[in-house]
Simulated assay, not measured.
Amino acid sequence: MTEHDDVRDLLAAWAFGALEPAEERVVPLHLARCEDCAAEAERLRETVRMLDGPLLDEPPSPLDTLFAGALRARPAPPRVARHAGPYAAAVAGLRALLPELAGRWSTPVVHDWDVHATVAHLLAADEHLALRLGIDARVPGARIDEDADWTDTWERRSAEVIAHEYGSRPEETVADWSAQAAELLGTAHARDPELAAGTTLLMGLRLPVAEHFLARAFEAWIHTDDIGRALGLTVPPPPEEHLGQLIGLAVRVLDTVLGTEAPPVLFAVRGGEEWVLGSRSDPVAAELTLDPVDFCLLVGGRYAPDAVPRDTTGDAAAVRNVLERAASLSWL
């Protein structure tokens, strides 16, 4: 390969600040004399200007939260459409955690994964959407099998990618994940709501591409939170607008899973919207209110149905059905 080819392969990592020291010397020199690569590098750099949530009125101490400085010195909003904003911010959130990971890659996180494996899993998790959008996989063996059971396929591919990445340094896994994320955020589907309104089948769900971007955001945030907890670091929830988008997706999927035969429950997130889940033809059997972050953690499999804090009235069995179905949605 030529120097030009080598540098183009590094541009996404450059945009994310994930280059090795030797690469940090090579890339700027090449960009200074290659207009094509310089233009592509600038496009990618714009893509990763991601933290577009509102500033906190009183930014917390750096001892309390990982992102205080990033929130106070917030960069310009990304050039992505609203549906891709939560994924852009979730990627930025995990990137903000990276300086804390040096020497701690083997810390147990979730399931039987350590920090390295958790990042490798995210590489695998984003891969399917990347393939659908025409992005080449970064780990050999990627495929889309429409006839296979999606849960088996999901678990098998995640295990394959983790095993592959254990043969690489953690920093190389991070660079691959970062580069794939940048490519996803650089697609036309991330910038064009009309294009992203088209549906595709992923994880057993036929949803608009826009909603698959929200699913990627959900998973990236959940696993960033997993890593933060494992390392004793506070990871803030998504900005309020993004959290509302993730909740909306989770409610739509939950309502589909419950179907029209389930006893109707009036479900609300504290301080937010409310929905009737289940049958629309019967009187509401119960009311259920959850904290918005707790609801996301329940859907993400981080709360057991009987352990999530909640306010309820009415039919306890109807409430339990909603909570159990919500927890069953987890693929994370």
Rank of each mutant, 00 (worst) to 15 (best):
V91P: 02
A92G: 15
A92V: 00
G93Q: 12
L94R: 07
L98D: 05
G103E: 03
R104C: 02
V109I: 13
V110F: 10
V110A: 15
H111K: 13
H111Y: 06
D112Q: 13
V115F: 04
V115P: 03
A120G: 04
H121T: 01
L122V: 08
L122K: 05
L123R: 00
L123I: 07
D126A: 13
L131A: 12
L133S: 00
A137V: 08
A137D: 05
R138A: 13
V139D: 04
A142K: 07
I144Y: 11
D145A: 10
D147Q: 14
D149N: 12
W150S: 08
D152K: 04
D152V: 09
W154T: 09
E155D: 14
E155V: 14
R156Q: 13
R157L: 06
S158K: 12
S158A: 15
E160K: 11
E160G: 07
V161R: 00
I162H: 09
A163T: 12
A163M: 00
A163I: 01
Y166V: 05
Y166D: 10
G167H: 10
S168L: 15
R169P: 02
E172M: 10
V174Q: 08
A175H: 12
S178W: 06
Q180E: 07
A181T: 07
L184Y: 03
T187N: 00
T187S: 12
A188M: 02
H189M: 06
P193N: 14
A196E: 02
T199Q: 11
T200A: 03
L201A: 10
L201G: 01
L205E: 13
R206H: 05
